[in-house]
Design a protein around this nucleic acid. Structure first.
Lengths: 316, 316
DNA sequence: TTGTAGGCGTTATCAG
DNA sequence: CTGATAACGCCTACAA
C-alpha cells in the first residue's frame, strides 16, 4: 500500500519499473485516491473556499473566475458559498462553519467580520483573506473606496452639479463595508464643497440592474430631482440609464450618471465610471491565500491596495 | 463518542438532557465535525460539483447562482470547476477525476462527453446531470437550441434580410454542443428559404463582449458585409453593437442584430434576442441532481426541455 | 526499495 | 439510552 501511495503521488524511493506498473494498473482500474481519506490523513483538504455576497453580478463572477484560474494551476479545488443576508452571514461565521474543515483557506468578499468573530475564527485555525473589508487578524485586499468614490463625485461637482443622487447597496443594511465606504466617499465629496447632503437622494439599488432601474424611478419622482447620479455599480447605472430612457430622458443632458466597476459593456453605454481592476483582484486574492497557507500567520497581516481610476466617457 | 455523534446530528435515542449538555459543550469549544472524516465513514461528501466552460459570463454566473441557492437549502456545498479548453476537458473527464469522490454529484454545463466517456464515468459511480448537452447515461436539461435559433433567423429573414452573419462560439472548436446546435439552427433557417450560406459570414466571438466587438469588425471589413447579424450570446451582441457604434453605424438601420440569452441589460440596448429562462435552469439542475442521488439511476435518464422565446425589441 | 502498523475523526453496529 | 469497537481509505513513520 505504501508503495502504491508513493508511486501514485510521484514521491521518491520507488523503483521506476514498480512506479510504471502501479500507474498502469491504476489507470486501468480508473483508480483515484479518495480525497476524504487523504484529507483525514494529512490534515489538508486541497481546496480553497470563497464567499461572496452575491454570485450573479459582473464583479463577483469575474473575481471568482480569477480565483479559479489561479487555484487550478496549484491543483486546488474551489468551494463557493454565497452569503446574501445577515442570517446567512451569522450562520456562515458562527454556525455551520463547515468550510473551516472542508477547505484550507477562505477568500471572503466584502462580508462583515467583527473583531470578535475574527479572533474566534483565527483561534480555530482559519486562514482567511478578506477582500473589500479588513480585519485585524487576516491579510486583506482592498480598494481605497473613499478616494475612488470621491473621484467620481468631484468630477460631477466640477461639472457644476450641486444636487447629486446616489444609488447605494442593499435596502436592508447588511453592514457590508464596501457600500458604506462608498457612501462615505460620496458624502465627503459633497461636504468638501459645502453641499448639504439630502437623505432623500440616497436610494438603495441592491447592486442589480433592476434595482438601479427602480432607484432611478424613485429619484425622478422627487419634487426636486437630482441633476446627477452616482451609482455604486455599473449594473445599477445601466438600470438607471434604462429608466431614464424609458421616460425620454438622456444622460448627461437631463441627468449625468457615473457608475463604479467599468463593466465589459460600460464602454458601449458611454458610461463614465470608476474602474477597478477586477481581473487581477481575484487572482491576487488566490495567490495571497495560497501564500498564507505556508507561513504560520503570526506576523502582521499583509494589506494590499488595488488601484482605481476614473474613466470619463459620455454620461457625465 | 457515539452518543456525542448522535446528539450533534439530532439523531434519536439520546436523552434530552444529554443532548443538551453535548450541544452546549460543543458550542463552547467551537466544535465542528470534520467533514472529511464523516465522508470517509458514510461514503457521502455532502457537496455537489458544477463544471462550466467559463465563469465570467452572464449566463453561467446566473446559473451557478441558481444552483447555489438550491444547494444551500439542502445543506450541500458547491464545488466549482471551469473547463475552458480541450486539454482541461480531458483532464477533468479522464485525468484527475478528483471531483468524483469529492462530490456526490456533478452538474455539467455544455461540456462534451463522448458516449465512451459517459459509460466510463457511469461505471465509476458518477452521478451527473448535463445541461446543454445530453448523454445516454445521465439525466439532462436542455433547450431546443435549433428551434430557438431558427426563431431568430426566421425573424431576420422575414424582415427581408438575405445576407446574414453569425457570431459563433470559440475559435478553436472545442466541440461544445450549444454553439454547434445554434449554428445548425442558423443554417437550417437560411436553407429553408434557399439562401446559400457563406462561410465568410461565420465568425467566432468566444462568447465575450470583446470577441463580439472583433467579430463585428471583421464582418464590416468584408467586401460584401451582411445586412443582419445573429450573435450566439447577448454579450457578443453588445460587443458587436459597440463596434458598429464606433464606426458610426446603427442597428437596425445599417445592420440588424439579434442576440441570445436576454441578459439583464439587453432591454436597455433594445436588443432583440432569444430569451432563455436562466433563473430556473440552475435551480432545476440542482434539484435534478439532488433527486438523482436517491434513486439507483438504473431507470431511463430524465430529459427536461427548457422554454425559449423570441423577444423583439429595436435592433431587429 | 518495499512492506507493516498505527492513526487521522467520524459513523454504525452491537452489547451492556 | 449509552458506550465500546470495528470499519472508512489513505499517509507516514519505521522495520525489513
Amino acid at each position: 500500500m505504501a508503495t502504491v501511495s508513493r508511486a501514485l503521488r510521484d514521491l521518491p524511493n520507488v523503483a521506476p519499473s514498480t512506479r510504471e506498473r502501479v500507474q498502469r494498473v491504476a489507470q486501468q482500474l480508473d483508480y483515484v485516491a479518495n480525497p476524504s481519506a487523504a484529507s483525514l490523513a494529512v490534515g489538508r483538504t486541497g481546496s480553497i473556499a470563497a464567499v461572496v455576497p452575491m454570485l450573479d453580478s459582473w464583479y463577483f463572477a469575474k473575481a471568482v473566475a480569477g480565483i479559479e484560474a489561479v487555484l487550478k494551476e496549484s491543483n486546488f479545488d474551489l468551494l463557493l458559498y454565497a452569503v446574501t443576508n445577515e442570517r446567512e452571514r451569522l450562520q456562515f461565521v458562527t454556525g455551520r462553519t463547515d468550510w473551516l474543515r472542508r477547505s484550507d483557506g477562505l477568500i471572503m468578499f466584502d462580508i462583515r467580520l467583527s473583531d470578535d468573530e475574527s479572533k474566534r475564527l483565527e483561534a480555530n485555525g482559519a486562514k482567511i483573506v478578506t477582500i473589500g473589508t479588513c480585519s485585524p487578524s487576516f491579510p486583506s485586499l482592498m480598494l481605497d473606496e473613499v478616494t475612488a468614490t470621491r473621484a467620481a463625485v468631484d468630477h460631477l461637482v466640477a461639472k457644476g452639479h450641486r444636487r447629486i443622487g446616489v444609488i447605494t447597496g442593499d435596502a436592508e443594511d447588511l453592514g457590508y463595508r464596501v457600500p458604506i465606504l462608498r457612501l462615505e466617499g460620496f458624502r465627503q465629496g459633497l461636504e468638501a464643497v459645502g453641499i448639504e447632503q439630502d437623505p432623500e437622494l440616497e436610494i438603495p439599488g441592491g447592486f442589480s440592474t433592476e434595482g438601479g432601474r427602480e432607484a432611478m424611478a424613485d429619484l425622478l419622482k422627487l419634487d426636486d430631482p437630482p441633476t446627477a447620479v452616482f451609482a455604486m455599480s455599473d449594473e445599477m447605472a445601466f438600470g438607471a440609464l434604462d429608466q431614464m430612457r424609458s421616460q425620454g430622458l438622456c444622460a448627461p443632458d437631463d441627468i449625468a450618471v457615473v457608475g463604479f466597476d467599468d463593466n465589459d459593456v460600460s464602454e458601449l453605454f458611454g458610461l463614465t465610471t470608476v474602474r477597478q481592476d477586477v481581473d487581477t483582484i481575484g487572482a491576487t486574492a488566490a495567490r495571497m491565500i495560497l501564500a498564507s497557507l505556508g507561513n504560520s500567520g503570526s506576523d502582521e497581516p499583509e494589506r494590499v491596495l488595488s488601484k482605481t481610476s476614473l474613466i470619463i466617457r459620455r454620461t457625465a
